[in-house]
Simulated scan of single mutants.
Amino acid sequence: MHISAKADYATRALLELACEPSRPLTCEAIASAQQIPFRFLKSVVGELRKAGLVRSQRGCEGGYWLGRPAGEITLLDVAHAVDGELITLRGESLAALGYPGPAAGLPAVWRQVEAGAAAVLGGVTLASLLPAAAAARLDRKGAA
């Protein structure tokens, strides 16, 4: 399984936003804090916005916030938002994959791998990954 740079950067950006739920953060601030290339992060944040995982506001007081509470955003949500399919084989979905003869059982194994990865990623929220101090701030604000 390959974890894309987009999924990694997207998750790190969302965790930065989750740590500061009371104020918007700029892409510049997030990129600097997480040592992510700004131009790449800008496109990733655009995909997160389209998926409803972040919301934005323009202007001098603008920036980005989480689109939902950190406790409601899973790593599976992030992966689907930026990568689409969780696991592909040669760029194709595993859903319709089929092999002839002695390899006929192999697609079922690949689908089990995908289901296992989805179960793990779907069970991890942004809130569960936050350091204790940030999680406590979320609890006080009722955002987790």
Rank of each mutant, 00 (worst) to 15 (best):
A127I: 03
S93V: 11
R111I: 09
L126K: 08
L48D: 02
L75Q: 08
G84Y: 08
V113H: 08
G101R: 12
A136V: 11
G101F: 14
E92F: 04
L129P: 07
E61K: 05
G142E: 14
L121H: 10
G67E: 10
G98M: 02
F40C: 06
A70W: 01
H80Y: 11
G105S: 10
M1S: 13
S22C: 00
P24A: 09
L130G: 03
G71I: 13
Y64W: 14
G101E: 12
V45Q: 07
V109W: 13
A95K: 08
E20K: 04
V54M: 01
K42V: 02
L75E: 08
A33N: 08
A33H: 04
A51H: 11
L97A: 13
T11S: 01
R55A: 12
A95P: 00
A5I: 00
E92H: 09
D77H: 15
E20F: 11
A117S: 05
W65L: 05
A143L: 15
I36T: 04
C19R: 15
L106D: 07
A70D: 06
R49I: 00
A108C: 04
V113F: 11
A10F: 05
A144H: 08
A132K: 04
A10V: 04
A115P: 00
E28H: 01
R12P: 06
A143R: 15
V113I: 14
L41T: 06
V120M: 01
V113S: 05
V44C: 12
E72C: 09
A96K: 05
G46K: 08
Q35N: 08
A144R: 14
K6A: 13
R58D: 14
A81D: 08
G105Y: 12
L41P: 09
